[in-house]
Amino acid sequence: MQDRVASVIKQSDALLLAIEDAETGQRGFLLTGDEKYLQPYFEGKRVAARAVGDLIDSVHTLSQFAALRAIQRDMRDKLDELDQTVRLEREGHHEEALAIVRSDAGKESMDRLRSGIGRFVADCEARRSTALTDSRRRVQATEYAFIALLLGVAGLLAFTASMQAKAYKGVIRGTKRMSRDALRDSLTGLPNRRDLARRLEKLRADDGTAQQPVTALFIDLDGFKAINDKLGHAVGDALLRAVSESLKRVTRLGDLVARVGGDEFVVIAPGLASPSVIEKLCERLMAEIRVLASSYGGVGLSIGVATQSGAGFVAEELLQKADNAMYVAKRSGGGYHFDAGLNSCSRS
């Protein structure tokens, strides 16, 4: 039961990540007109279709099946919106494509999709918790039955109780491990997008955060696709792990570093006092990554920076502004770019 629930949660995360990758590719294509951004777009669509099919095959209750059908409808709405904008851009109707993006129809379907997947995962986790509780009750009932027979078979009962305790501890350890794995990127060990959202919510609710700004750096690894294609996925994976370690070395102890996509990372840094301090952080990040060029070839960073007041900051809005700023930096050939809410600053 627990293994099946863990698999369902993993497939749910894969579905959401695939849709987000497809959207990232669509945005890159609309912003640049470069067909190379359509590779993650088509790959995201393919993975999403497979993930939702796997999910439908893996559930056994009518309520879960109905929830997945609703998720599938929202997924189709979102993919239809992406397909339409890509088709219009390819036909040269750039402004019509942008008008669809600005209409927020895609955002609404994406919000419904995230909400539906969140509810579906929460239901799966609740079922897993109920199964664990039932398992514990059965273990306790068995122990009580054996205690009643303790006078007659004391030696046998001691052995049996010991084995049951070990089995139960194994279940607990396995459950905790699966819960941790659901919040971690399996390649780099960094928090994934789901854990990033959870931690941002905790940060927003922290009274100490209200007294200081919160800065988001949305980071795209330039040159990764060429390295991955030329040298192979094993080298690409090694590069992503090396970049993860580099980001952790440069950031402070209280900062959060997460991997949110194939070659995309996010750094959340509370309490950076001024744009000049943020610039120094960006410079250190880029210098650290440049060191990797000797081992992996041409690799760099495009960094988008956005800051909000800690008092009631909106996580999705903060990340979206940083994401938009990152695309400006990328179109400029890399480096970093500040959102308009900060004192305007760019460097390639």
Rank of each mutant, 00 (worst) to 15 (best):
L183E: 11
A6W: 05
V59S: 00
M163E: 14
R137S: 09
E316D: 15
A216E: 06
I303Q: 04
L247I: 01
K36Y: 12
A258W: 01
L239G: 03
Q140C: 12
D323Q: 08
A148K: 13
D80K: 14
T85K: 10
F42Y: 15
V86S: 05
F120E: 04
L285M: 02
L62C: 10
L183P: 03
S129W: 05
A131G: 11
V243T: 07
E316G: 10
S295P: 07
I117M: 02
A306R: 05
M163F: 11
K169P: 03
A287W: 06
L157Q: 13
D222P: 02
F313K: 04
E81R: 09
H337I: 02
D80C: 14
A167W: 13
S135K: 14
I19N: 05
S295Y: 11
G271S: 08
S58L: 15
I303G: 06
G333V: 00
E96D: 15
Q320A: 09
A242P: 05
L113N: 03
V101F: 10
L203S: 06
S332F: 09
E81Y: 11
R259F: 00
V299N: 00
Q320R: 14
R259E: 02
K107Y: 08
R290N: 14
M178F: 10
A182M: 04
L17P: 04
S302G: 02
A97M: 03
K36T: 12
L292D: 02
E95F: 13
G116W: 00
D134W: 08
L231P: 07
A14T: 12
L256K: 00
E317A: 15
D237L: 09
M1K: 06
G298L: 13
L82K: 07
D237P: 05
R4F: 10
G232Q: 01
N228L: 08
V243F: 06
R199D: 11
V101T: 00
V153G: 01
I19R: 01
A197W: 07
R90E: 10
I289G: 01
V171H: 07
T130G: 11
F65C: 10
A18G: 03
A48Q: 08
L301Q: 00
D207C: 11
S58V: 10
Y336R: 01
G261A: 06
I278N: 01
D83N: 13
D111C: 06
F29D: 08
I172L: 15
L253I: 11
I172G: 07
K45G: 07
D339V: 05
G254K: 09
